[in-house]
Write a protein that binds this DNA or RNA. Structure first.
Lengths: 269, 269
DNA sequence: AAGTGGTCTAGACCACCAT
DNA sequence: TGGTGGTCTAGACCACTTC
């Protein structure tokens, strides 16, 4: 039986730190199987509930992932996603050598009446004859579910959108077949815990920390063409964002940004 | 004894939902005191550990706050913070009618040798004679700790910076006394759980969900003047961000943004 | 002094998964 | 079928807050 008890710091936290150190030191490499809760309890001479509390911390911190309702494994490094890049998640994953995918949950056409006021307002719709496409997808990276995307598109801008292969990049479809180039967006971000309902749909654990984004996307001629509510797993994704006041854009600091961003990305390697 | 057991959904989650509903319905208004864990256990006919699990969910979701190591109260609505606004947290809180404050934790001048490579690189320092100011503060809103700010400033740009009142807005000081206008930044965002060490400094519960930001800020002439590592409480803050490709700025879509942002803010009320 | 949250135990039962 | 995670219980002790 290993002995790690020291005063003051709770045991479950000490056990979590010990396991975290083993992960960071490479003793437990990515995808290594974590000992079962009962094994940990015996090894450290603690109760199973205490061992479980330790694992739960590491799951929430993203160091460990549970598969199904089965055992826990050391997590792979986080994916990187630039919130301010016009290229969407799909393109960014592909550029990073990760296989992006999507599982279609819902694809339907809704009449104006069925829209929430928020959606209608965000898409600047006031014609009661209008229809809107509603698409819900689980986004995956190397087959792993990493985000849920609940999006709305004005039907008159993208006729027969639902006939395309909606497991591809939707922004790619808009660009290729409809000539729509996303030029800007307004996003609202909230940190939250994954809802039981969404967790069920995504097939991951409830209560994982997530980044929720409500996004209003515009074309270059200032027309809103998408309203979306995205939920990203915070335990699997590292987010990047660039911000600036308009003046600095006019001063041509785009290059500076690119340099600085390259620095950040180089460091993350 | 109240009866709320139904099949399938775990009891602690049902109790959490019940309390959440009472909060949303206004039966438990902001600052109302939550029943003690033992009281809840008795009322619902469950064990104290189960009642405690229910409360923990609501604390992490930001609906409930624990004060000290004492009882739990219904949380006030979240503060709003626009990550892409050049105005910092201080100014934004003030505009929203909230009293911003800061508690100084550390204020020191460091030689080049003491800097981590990341700090030196972010500030574009290569002169080994250089000094850097290092300031750590706990940011508060209406007296409540909401963020921790760990920032570095090149000393040659801001001589005697430490002599100013560092519980004021630092950006305000830079602007007023040094004529430095922040023009842009590159930020890296990560969702994480609050570290025991930082939780201690901030005086809040460990493991709260947070937004960590590493920020490199630039003046209009592209000189980096700040590198900062901020930790924001996700349970108390709602974040907003605007993004766009440079082209849309040149096309003059700033007004559009302002309109869209106003919409978002109006809805949040 | 009484009450409270924070921690911990040693069991238990169940549904599900891998073998 | 045996092991696993998910849940739940009925206690316990401690440090601290509140009164």
């Amino acid at each position: 039986m290993a002995e790690i008890r020291t005063p003051n710091r709770p045991i479950y936290r000490q056990v979590a730190e010990q396991i975290a150190e083993e992960i960071e030191a490479g003793i437990l490499p990515a995808d290594a199987r974590i000992s079962s809760e009962r094994e940990l309890a015996e090894r450290y001479g603690i109760s199973r509930m205490t061992a479980r509390a330790a694992i739960n911390i590491l799951v929430q911190r993203g160091l460990i992932v549970r598969r199904n309702r089965s055992r826990a494994y050391v997590a792979q490094p986080k994916f990187r996603f630039d919130l301010s890049s016009p290229g969407g998640l799909h393109e960014q994953l592909r550029k990073a050598g990760v296989e992006p995918g999507a599982k279609l949950i819902t694809a339907e056409m809704l009449p104006y009446d069925a829209l929430s006021p928020r959606v209608a307002q965000a898409l600047a719709l006031d014609d009661e004859e209008t229809f809107v496409y509603h698409i819900v997808r689980v986004r995956t990276a190397n087959g792993e579910p990493i985000a849920l995307e609940d999006s709305y598109f004005p039907a008159h801008l993208f006729p027969d959108l639902l006939d395309f292969n909606l497991t591809d990049s939707i922004y790619g479809i808009l660009r290729k077949y409809f000539g729509v180039e996303p030029a800007g967006s307004v996003q609202e971000l909230e940190i939250s815990l994954l809802d039981a309902e969404w967790a069920e749909i995504m097939g991951v654990a409830v209560d994982l920390p997530t980044l929720e984004i409500w996004r209003q996307a515009f074309t270059a001629d200032n027309a809103p063409f998408e309203f979306a509510h995205d939920i990203y797993r915070g335990d699997r994704i590292l987010f990047i964002a660039r911000t600036a006041s308009p003046e600095s854009f006019l001063a041509g600091s785009g290059l500076l940004w690119q340099r600085a961003l390259d620095n950040l990305q180089a460091e993350g390697a």
